[in-house]
Design a protein around this nucleic acid. Structure first.
Lengths: 345, 345
DNA sequence: TTAAAGCACGAAAACGATTAAGTAAAAAGA
DNA sequence: TCTTTTTACTTAATCGTTTTCGTGCTTTAA
């Protein structure tokens, strides 16, 4: 490996001078600088980030916490989209992305230990089984700049998809199509996302003067097609079933969709359905799903941008709440219905 | 940050002794060792990997090349599955995973430069726009241990999904259901994957004594629903259309599937279709897709295991070709047909 | 002409670990 | 008892940078 020392020897200068020449900082003559830079290029010099980090405490490396709970990690289009956005952004700003080790069995390091071990300049928490766990909390409380996605902690800048507005937009659109009996199969309560959406669901219902019977709101975990299928059955079996069902996400929707078609009902003829997330597949299905597309790349990019900002200019960096708007994709899975239909039962 | 120096001072020993105690290597008294370890724990000592890497040239960090070409990267279920497997495996073995920077605009570092800059112990090439590009080739030729997925290079251990066997299994299953007119919309030629599958397609057809008219094989890029839709149209418009169409992957299949249902044809009543990859969605659709499920986690894990092997015991490590078998998911999208149907045109 | 400033560079310490070589004391062997 | 070996530890160099503080030399001001 070619080091500064070699360049120094070749150019008959000191290592210090080489460092100055390459970093373009400090006092150095114009011609010497060029000579050194030229030699560095010729020799194919690449700086050693480990040595640099050792000295400067600046690793140009960002740790990303990405816990995988039963397919809800890398293989989840939402999270992988966010990760991708994050990656693109920080690469643009000359940082690298390293996963924080989530394998505990043979590691006695906590997340924070791991972050210190790797000298991460900052941390992005993208997805997490349990944000309230001691390990995660320890990380969030630490003095390492941290950004969270879809979770709020007093210490950290958070990037949040606008679940409130998203749900509201979705509800109002469904309402505008004539629906008055709207059910919501919501994701696991306890998650911030569900809380927001659920609150927005009820609030908007109130605003629209809709009556939401207790049986119309059922919990089913995100991405769990079986649970959403069960929930759908129970909704369809109601004496007064909804005319439209909102699902936790597009994937879970498929579970319900299958139940509906198995019963010989058509979408949106006999019943309307709406999803959330706007995964790629949702616009390929027939009928196209009515859903809220989340701008995952944007979410990731914003997270990256803010994180690096708080790394590089800690004074100007605030703890922010950045909200990214979703986009209503009207699709065709929510149909127009007449008032009579609403009263037919 | 608590360093070995602090522990040394506390225990009134030298830094060297601390190092030996913690690494459990070299000559050290049992009681001193325990005392030092106890103190290290009390102080919350975490080693500094940068310092260690600087001295030992061993970073315990693996670089992963993951180029994103229009959605074929992180958000692709196949690649993200492989990445996830890789991550799980190497974490188990105490390595970390860092993305190799693929953003060129503001980086004058090649992939190899970047790998040296970060002192990667090894490299995993998961997905790549163009394996033949100078940058990628430079990386593969380098002396850094490297493993590739679905690509073969003389220098590197490769983990490959068995596309030959997969296609063969799929063909034979379709044949067993009575189909004799089988079309194949194949992914972009030029990729190893397509080459293997295409060869297997023709070879198996020959073995089964099937006649494959030239119009039955059409190229359409992976994941591109529009292209596969077009291809499907042209197949359906043939004077003598196929009774079964094999798609490049499950996602591309959706494009064709929509064309078919738009024309009022039923699957598998009027025509059969088969996919490839076995993405989660494929088993949620109605009818369930007939497809080849690839064991992405296994592919990733094998890649990780072999890579670390060749890092840690270079002498025993060979350049290997590891083939991971896929699994035929019969689903219901390929129907049984009678000989008459085959001759009805 | 001389002192003060400015410029371009070098010497050396430091970052936090690892490791070869050295050393004193204790244990073992003669 | 004296030498040899072993044990347990220390010293010091090293990895590749960065950065502070000098130090000569040149230029400018007095």
């Amino acid at each position: 490996m070619v080091s500064m020392k070699m360049i120094a020897e070749r150019c008959k200068v000191s290592v210090a001078t080489v460092s100055k020449a390459l970093s373009d900082r400090g006092d150095i003559g114009e011609d010497t600088k060029n000579r050194i830079r030229q030699t560095a290029k010729e020799l194919g010099y690449v700086p050693n980030v480990a040595a640099r980090a050792l000295k400067t405490k600046h690793s140009y490396n960002i740790g990303v916490l990405f816990e995988e709970q039963a397919g809800s990690g890398l293989t989840h289009e939402y999270f992988s989209g966010v990760l991708n956005g994050l990656k693109l952004q920080i690469e643009q700003q000359h940082y690298d992305l390293t996963f924080i080790n989530t394998s505990f069995e043979n590691s006695d390091m906590t997340y924070l230990d791991h972050a210190r071990y790797r000298n991460f300049d900052g941390i992005a928490v993208i997805c997490c089984d349990d944000y309230e766990s001691p390990q995660v909390q320890e990380l969030l409380r630490s003095d390492i700049p941290t950004v969270t996605v879809d979770y709020i902690h007093q210490n950290c800048t958070a990037v949040l998809s606008n679940n409130i507005k998203g749900m509201e937009d979705l509800m109002k659109y469904i309402y505008s199509q004539g629906h008055r009996r709207i059910a919501y199969i919501c994701g696991q309560t306890g998650s911030y996302v569900t809380k927001d959406r659920l609150a927005a669901f009820y609030r908007t219902a109130e605003e629209l003067k809709l009556d939401i019977p207790g049986e119309y709101v059922i919990e089913a975990r995100y991405m769990e097609t079986k649970e959403s299928a069960e929930a759908t059955k129970s909704l369809l079996d109601l004496k007064n079933p909804p005319t439209c069902i909102i699902y936790p996400d597009d994937m879970a929707l498929i579970g319900g969709r299958n139940v509906i078609t198995e019963r010989g009902m058509t979408i949106p003829g006999d019943i309307s359905i709406a999803g959330y997330d706007g995964i790629r597949m949702s616009q390929l299905l027939h009928p196209k799903l009515t859903t809220i597309r989340q701008d995952t790349e944007r979410i990731g990019r914003e997270a990256g941008r803010r994180l690096i900002q708080s790394i590089e200019t800690p004074k100007t960096a605030l703890v922010e709440r950045v909200v990214i708007e979703g986009e209503l994709l009207t699709g065709q899975s929510v149909g127009k219905i007449t008032p009579e239909t609403n009263n037919q039962f």
